[in-house]
Design a protein around this nucleic acid. Structure first.
Lengths: 219, 219
DNA sequence: AAGCCCATGTAAGACGTTACATGATTGT
DNA sequence: ACAATCATGTAACGTCTTACATGGGCTT
């Protein structure tokens, strides 16, 4: 039940058609949300039936009519109370991390290939986001206004960027780790061997210590 | 179609019941996956019908019978090829970031309250994960073995921890930002005012420059 | 006495994805 | 010529969540 809030939130900013909403999702809001037109259109109908939004048809030449939606007072109430409501505990589904978790089933070289490929995917996203940040800042400077709305969207943009930067960095670190521990994949002969541990002992000790040392109270 | 891979991946490590699988999801795997028993049981039945897993009943005293599943060769093939397959582009749904995006609808104090609350939620998760990392390392030291399996799960654990640490840090930074820009919420009188920008100009310039300076090629 | 843990499921409904359907205009 | 963009939707299917159902044993 959050698609409705994504839509109502957007309509609290500007009037829009279902098509416009989809574009906004794919563009700026893709940092935290996504949806298909085939889900947006029925949801808009529901919202209209509940009188949280209203619509009017705007004819165009050579193009289909635009069905432009506006938020009602009821809609404003709904989005405002949702924004102030206790946030959900995050329900993460990261299928790539799951693949990594099970990559002991493939060769070290294949692991590195997968990590490099995914790093590239994330880099592309990061490049697009940097573009968006650039444009957002230029538009603020040009229009010479600062508002709570722009402030909060700046914070969200930054979070999106940070996320990409840090995932990319993790990919790099993990590639280095696997590279350094390639020998573990060779010695799958003796299942109870002690040797594999000694090979990687120092390295893993450092890795775990570094992990436990990760702290949130530094600058 | 990824729940089946979560299950097959687990069964490629140990035999388990549906109930065991659920616990593993909620524990170690919660970094990247979650599911309900009511979805796991039917999926196990499907996997058995497709002969990717087999089951046997293990009677117990005073408790219901355990239906223990084992992976078949077909199941191994399926999970291996999935792990080596091109990763999906990430489909993020972060309803808290969405709330933040629309928080221009509530007061600066309420924004700070929400951010602090969420920071606490994430801190709790982080503390639990640190516990898990500690235990994982102790078990490695105790058993004196290192394997690809343990290596990959260490990397995934680290990613989970990093994610929490960085989200918490972002909450802190954003609280500071909103605190510094509280005045923006007061001056909602004149909609086209130039003043609000000048108030926050330097601060925002720094913020955007810092955002654009975020780089992935540092240590 | 109340509620959680073990252990299995079914059923109904909400939410999300992919495919299908239409049709003019604009760009490569 | 072919694909993309604008703009609306429906239908079928797949996935996920919530509620219901059972029942002994253990803890507070």
């Amino acid at each position: 039940m959050t698609l409705r809030h994504a839509i109502l939130g957007l309509l609290s900013k500007w009037d829009a058609t279902g098509y416009d909403i989809k574009k906004e999702f794919d563009d700026f809001m893709s940092i935290f949300w996504h949806s298909h037109l085939s889900q947006i259109y029925p949801e808009l109908n529901k919202l209209e039936a509940e009188e949280l939004v209203t619509s009017r048809l705007v004819p165009q030449e050579g193009k289909p009519d635009r069905k432009v939606y506006s938020i009602t007072n009821g809609g404003i109430d709904e989005i405002t109370s949702w924004v102030g409501a206790p946030p959900d505990i995050p329900k993460i589904k990261d299928s790539f991390l799951m693949q990594v978790f099970f990559m002991d089933n493939i060769s070290a070289d294949d692991v590195i290939f997968q990590l490099k490929y995914y790093q590239g995917v994330r880099q592309k996203r990061l490049d697009e986001m940097k573009q968006t940040v650039q444009e957002a800042w230029e538009s603020i400077v040009e229009r010479q206004i600062m508002t709570p709305r722009l402030l909060m969207s700046s914070a969200v943009l930054r979070r999106g960027l940070e996320q990409e930067v840090q995932y990319i960095r993790w990919c790099e670190e993990t590639i280095a780790l696997v590279e350094a521990c390639k020998s573990l994949w060779d010695t799958d002969t003796s299942p109870d061997s002690v040797l594999p541990f000694n090979d990687a002992k120092e390295l893993m000790e450092n890795y775990y210590n570094a992990t436990l040392a990760l702290e949130n109270d530094e600058a």
